[in-house]
Simulated assay, not measured.
Amino acid sequence: MHKLFFKIQIDAPPEKVWDVLWSDMTYRQWTTAFTEGSFYMGTFEEGSIMKFFDPDNNGMYSSVEKNIANKEMKFLHLGEIYDGVETVQDWGEATEDYILEETPTGTILKVEIQTPEEFKSFFEEKFPTALGIVKNLSENQL
């Protein structure tokens, strides 16, 4: 398991950054960095299951481990979805944690990921682009 860290300063309040991260419309925009046409199904309530899809309805499902509005969202990735079939994966503690820290000029968005070797280079390549889109949306949308 690899632990990856990403961080970006955003000149917008945490509430705005949070909204960009988790609102359906803007989620679809910033996740184009990973796969064009990405979307989710479910609710972000702690303990609930979220499903994350590509345009072909394949993807992964995760448990919402923590949801503290405007501060932290943490997922535990449980398995994959292909052709509508959920398959549990032995990823151990594969987590994705979004942490927002308010600063005098806005927000520091930190992402901490624990990932198996097979996804490490993908995240290292794609996450900086994704966070740049989150920054742009947060700073420039009404």
Score class of each variant (00 low, 15 high):
residue 135 K to H: 03
residue 122 F to E: 11
residue 62 S to Q: 02
residue 130 A to G: 13
residue 72 E to M: 14
residue 69 A to F: 04
residue 81 I to N: 10
residue 48 S to L: 03
residue 129 T to R: 09
residue 112 E to Y: 06
residue 122 F to G: 13
residue 39 F to Q: 02
residue 120 K to A: 07
residue 63 S to N: 03
residue 20 V to R: 10
residue 137 L to G: 06
residue 109 L to G: 01
residue 81 I to Y: 08
residue 112 E to G: 08
residue 51 K to F: 01
residue 9 Q to P: 04
residue 130 A to I: 11
residue 101 E to V: 13
residue 123 F to Y: 03
residue 44 F to L: 04
residue 41 M to F: 03
residue 104 P to N: 06
residue 117 E to A: 14
residue 119 F to S: 14
residue 83 D to K: 09
residue 75 F to P: 00
residue 131 L to K: 09
residue 61 Y to I: 04
residue 60 M to C: 03
residue 55 P to R: 00
residue 22 W to D: 01
residue 118 E to C: 13
residue 23 S to A: 11
residue 114 Q to R: 13
residue 92 G to Q: 09
residue 91 W to F: 02
residue 85 V to E: 05
residue 96 E to Q: 15
residue 132 G to V: 00
residue 119 F to Y: 13
residue 1 M to C: 05
residue 137 L to F: 05
residue 70 N to P: 06
residue 27 Y to V: 07
residue 97 D to Q: 11
residue 79 G to C: 02
residue 51 K to E: 07
residue 58 N to P: 05
residue 20 V to E: 11
residue 110 K to L: 12
residue 24 D to Y: 03
residue 46 E to D: 04
residue 123 F to E: 00
residue 142 L to Y: 05
residue 127 F to D: 01
residue 11 D to Q: 12
residue 79 G to F: 07
residue 60 M to N: 03
residue 80 E to F: 00
residue 140 N to V: 02
residue 61 Y to C: 02
residue 122 F to S: 14
residue 42 G to T: 04
residue 57 N to T: 12
residue 17 V to K: 08
residue 23 S to R: 09
residue 103 T to I: 12
residue 115 T to G: 08
residue 49 I to Q: 07
residue 16 K to H: 05
residue 64 V to R: 03
residue 74 K to M: 02
residue 42 G to Y: 01
residue 100 L to V: 13
residue 2 H to R: 12
residue 59 G to D: 02
residue 26 T to I: 03
residue 43 T to E: 12
residue 85 V to H: 05
residue 139 E to K: 09
residue 108 I to W: 00
residue 19 D to S: 15
residue 108 I to G: 04
residue 59 G to S: 08
residue 93 E to V: 14
residue 83 D to V: 11
residue 116 P to G: 14
residue 69 A to R: 10
residue 111 V to Q: 11
residue 51 K to S: 09
residue 23 S to W: 00
residue 104 P to L: 08
residue 132 G to M: 02
residue 30 W to C: 12
residue 88 V to G: 00
residue 104 P to M: 06
residue 126 K to I: 11
residue 103 T to Y: 08
residue 103 T to M: 10
residue 135 K to V: 08
residue 5 F to Q: 15
residue 43 T to I: 14
residue 14 P to R: 10
residue 48 S to N: 05
residue 134 V to N: 06
residue 58 N to W: 07
residue 45 E to F: 02
residue 82 Y to N: 15
residue 10 I to W: 01
residue 18 W to T: 15
residue 114 Q to D: 12
residue 32 T to G: 09
residue 83 D to P: 06
residue 64 V to F: 00
residue 41 M to T: 08
residue 58 N to H: 10
residue 83 D to F: 10
residue 44 F to W: 07
residue 36 E to G: 02
residue 30 W to V: 14
residue 66 K to C: 14
residue 90 D to V: 11
residue 133 I to Q: 05
residue 64 V to T: 13
residue 46 E to W: 01
residue 99 I to M: 07
residue 4 L to A: 13
residue 103 T to S: 11
residue 52 F to K: 00
residue 27 Y to S: 03
residue 68 I to A: 07
residue 7 K to P: 07
residue 102 E to H: 10
residue 95 T to C: 01
residue 38 S to E: 10
residue 82 Y to C: 14
residue 30 W to Q: 11
residue 10 I to Y: 00
residue 94 A to Y: 08
residue 131 L to V: 03
residue 115 T to P: 08
residue 132 G to H: 01
residue 7 K to L: 12
residue 59 G to T: 04
residue 104 P to G: 09
residue 8 I to R: 05
residue 122 F to Y: 10
